[in-house]
Design a protein around this nucleic acid. Structure first.
Length: 574
RNA sequence: GGACCUGUGGUGCAGCUAGGAGUGCACGCCGGCCUGUCAAGCCGGAGGUCGCGGGUUCAAAUCCCGUCAGGUCCGCCA
């Protein structure tokens, strides 16, 4: 039906007769003797010249036959990839007429989200969405090749799974054959892939759909895709290597540049230096410890168990009212207050400090503060005194708000965050809460701390972070029944409860479970960052709105009474 | 469950603080003119229950209350 693609016509084709198919992007008519038709397909736009008038409208689907020719001198269009040439002597055949689209099929048309989604098939024609979905496909292809190359076997796992009440809310699917019973859609193939390890598939991966019935965000949809992988007879370091290969290959395939090998930092270091477990390493400045500087201070505001500082480069011009707002922001984040120091310098290079605390600040303290923060003239230095965790988290958040940039901007800075704590807090029942999941292997050095000091137990769990976004997480799993029992015990999960929730997994482990470890990361998030987007909706063909609706199909919708009856479902009014 | 922002011809906005006739801008659409344009140009035209409901007022796009939708975030996401 066609001899080539619109965006690929070039000087090499001059003199060739072509037939191109696509949509009318634009037409410029000059009376009955001359008309220009910009024809668009997925590859781009080419100008077609008709010697006569045309009966065309925007978005008509047409086939154009003509001869490629060099444009007359001075008529080239450098803004167009095909701008050196045009298709001349064109005959146009209308394959399908079209009503005017609800919005222009161009990137610069900034359209309301509902309208875009209601007419997603039009939105998808826009170069941005074409590029994003193709980039996503490139990313997935590179990941598949990397996993295949490393000897991994792609295995599919069920979408209709068994309820295993754990973390995320699950989508339920009623069983027609066993009325009153339900499947659930998997929040991840976690248990299935561990069963595959017991089953001897010692290197498994899958581009897996995961479904979680939790509130939606710019980086969260009900359904999303993960590169899910698991391997037997491997160490944590092996897993980081497998995954690094996949994401670096994907990044190189998508952007043409291969980032450097991915550095590791411990969870404790991430918190201490960046105030978060998902640090954005594109931001140069990081938190500094001011504890020594103010060790013997008389300043009551700095009496807390920990004093942390943050240098804001160029922040000295921040107005008094903005600093007041910043202080209020710090309080709303949980700090007792916020100290600020505007740094200026005279011609001789002496640094001056402007601060409400300037009067009570000793000279040594001032010099120590400036040195610790590495402050220069024109900077702003912020300080919070509190419990270590609070001081770090508050300043870490301010670091993002004052120095951060959109996730898709700038270089791609990956980092592995390792040695996550095994438990994140003591729950209402007096037992610690698992930070990752209950099959995570504790750090071998910390096994004996589980009973005495659970919150200090490190785990063999790790996250992959890209530009401040958590891409995914994984862990070395427990494969020994005695260790698993100790973890269940620490978590306050009784033998009976463990049996009813995870019995089929622990049961499988009795028949020979290899040591294994794995990982999973979000394809949508990776693709969004690599595409320079801030929302994963931009790399998903048919996403849901924040209220979980699909404006195109109208989902979710009520089910007919007969359909409900067949499923044995009754609707209870609120 | 909560906070904030947005909702005005098909699209994007201005108008709202300080109430006075649906006023304006850009794009698109329709018709006409035009033989080298390329976000074509010129001339003319059509198109809006100002998201919805209620209240205040002589008078509401504008002020108040409620509600719906979209977005961002908190909670939630082992």
């Amino acid at each position: 039906m066609r001899t080539g693609m619109c965006g690929e016509v070039g000087p090499a084709d001059v003199g060739t007769k072509v037939r191109l198919c696509g949509w009318v992007a634009r037409r410029r008519e000059h009376g009955e003797h001359l008309a220009f038709v910009d024809l668009r397909d997925r590859t781009g736009i080419v100008q077609c010249v008709v010697d006569g008038s045309v009966e065309l409208r925007t978005e008509y689907v047409v086939a154009v036959s003509g001869v490629v020719r060099r444009r007359p001198a001075g008529m080239e269009n450098p803004a167009l990839a095909t701008g050196e040439v045009e298709v001349g002597d064109c005959e146009v055949e209308v394959l399908a007429a079209a009503e005017p689209p609800p919005f222009l099929v161009e990137d610069r048309a900034d359209v309301d989200e509902t309208v875009r989604l209601r007419y997603r098939y039009v939105d998808l024609r826009r170069p941005r969405m074409q590029a994003n979905l193709r980039l996503r496909a490139t990313v997935v292809g590179a990941i598949r090749r990397a996993m295949d190359r490393q000897g991994f076997c792609e295995v599919e796992t069920p979408l209709l799974w068994s309820p295993t009440p754990e973390g995320a809310r699950e989508f339920a699917v009623p069983s027609r054959l066993q009325r009153g019973s339900f499947y659930v859609l998997p929040q991840s193939p976690q248990i299935a892939k561990q069963l595959l390890m017991v089953g001897g598939f010692d290197r498994y991966y899958q581009i897996a759909r995961c479904l979680r019935d939790e509130d939606l965000r710019a980086d969260r949809q009900f359904e999303f895709s993960q590169l899910d992988m698991e391997a037997s007879f491997v160490t944590q370091s092996d897993v980081l290597g497998f995954v690094s290969d996949a994401v670096l290959d994907a990044t190189e395939a998508a952007t043409g540049e291969r980032p450097p090998p991915i550095a590791q930092m411990t969870w404790a270091e991430a918190l201490d230096r960046y105030g978060t477990d998902k640090p954005d390493l594109r931001i140069e400045t990081s938190l500094v410890d001011l504890g020594e500087v103010f060790a013997g201070t008389g300043i009551r505001a700095f009496a807390g168990p920990c004093v942390k500082g943050l240098r804001v480069p160029g922040g000295a011009t921040t107005s008094r009212s903005a600093l007041d707002a910043l202080t209020a922001r710090a309080r709303s984040l949980g700090a007792k207050g916020l100290a600020w120091f505007r740094v200026s310098g005279d011609a001789g290079g002496t640094l001056e400090v402007d601060s409400p605390l300037a009067r009570v600040l000793g000279d040594d303290e001032r010099d120590g503060l400036l040195a610790a923060a590495d402050a220069r003239a024109g900077d702003l230095v912020l300080a919070v005194s509190d419990e270590h965790r609070v001081a770090c988290r508050v300043l870490g958040q301010l670091r993002l708000e004052l120095c951060g940039k959109p996730v898709g901007e700038g270089p791609h800075r990956y980092v592995w965050v390792v040695e996550f704590p095994m438990f994140e807090a003591i729950g209402a029942d007096g037992h610690p809460v698992a930070a990752h999941h209950p099959f995570t292997m504790p750090h071998p050095d910390d096994l004996d701390l589980m009973a005495t000091d659970p919150l200090s137990v490190r785990s063999q769990a790790y996250d992959l972070v890209l530009n401040g976004w958590e891409l995914g997480s994984g862990s070395v799993r427990i494969h020994r029944a005695d260790v698993q029992a100790r973890v269940f015990s620490a978590l306050g999960i009784s033998d009976e409860e463990a049996e009813s929730r995870f019995g089929f997994l622990t049961g499988a482990f009795r028949y020979g479970a290899p040591p294994h470890a794995g990982f999973a990361f979000g394809i949508d998030r990776l693709a969004a960052v690599l595409a320079g987007e801030e929302s994963i909706r931009e790399v998903i063909a048919f996403p849901k709105t924040q209220s979980g609706a699909d404006p195109l199909t109208g989902a979710p919708k009520p089910l007919s009474a007969s359909a409900l009856a067949e499923l044995g479902i009754g609707i209870v009014a609120r």
